[in-house]
Amino acid sequence: MISIVGCRKTHRGDGRQPPVPVLDGVDLEVRPHEFVAVLGPSGCGKTTLLRILAGLEGWDSGEVRVHGRPVSGPGTDRALVFQDFALLPWATVTDNIAFGLELRGVARAERTAVANRLIDRVGLNGFARHYPHQLSGGMQQRVGLARALAVEPEILLLDEPFGSLDSLTRRGLQEDVLRLHHETRKTVLLVTHSVDEAARLGDRVVLLGPRPARVIETIETGLPRPRPDDIGSDRRFVALKEHLWNRLKALTSR
């Protein structure tokens, strides 16, 4: 589904600042319907990797393919959920969710119908006509999630989507994402710096080293799907987290 081989990227300096190598030969394979969590320390380049996949940025060398075709820009098969939500502040919840459909020229009646179904699905009933600033952070990200789902992508790209939320809200949204993944069987690539989140959500966890990023280790979590509510006390889960913690600590204390 997604195939990245030896992807390198250097952010060009602007004269005053020297060029910064961000990706140092990243290899990553994502199978259909798989939920892959890319875990790495802050600023390691994992967001850049996701932006490359979303078609927002280019790369210098290596291969980045989706469905076997090289990524050459944004595509209808992928949808991105942003860390800071990036909702249109002047548009209602309905219009924000329908944004991608509007861009594709879907008629208003039809896209409103899609938006209404998704509002129900992500638990925003009664907020269709609200504006983003009238919603809590968690609700705004539900809109962000619904906006991505509205275009019916095969691949969901999640860029630290719960990073700016409080822990309770984050847990709620994580469970929603697990449920959505279970129901829709979409391929999900999640980027996060949270060990707990990576272990809790991923079928596989891909550990990236500090910048410039390389894949340090790939771990099949082997945890059951659907995830039981008490996964937090599962011994394999606890051991996985312990392992990831130790690797991350070793990587960042060099």
Binding site: F82, L88, R147
Partner: peptide, 27 residues
Amino acid sequence: VDPRLLDAARAFGATPAQQWRTVRLPA
């Protein structure tokens, strides 16, 4: 204009003209 909003528009496939109409001008 918030560059993150332009990113969102581009990620959902907005053409340059659509970026003006849906993001830059309203902002």
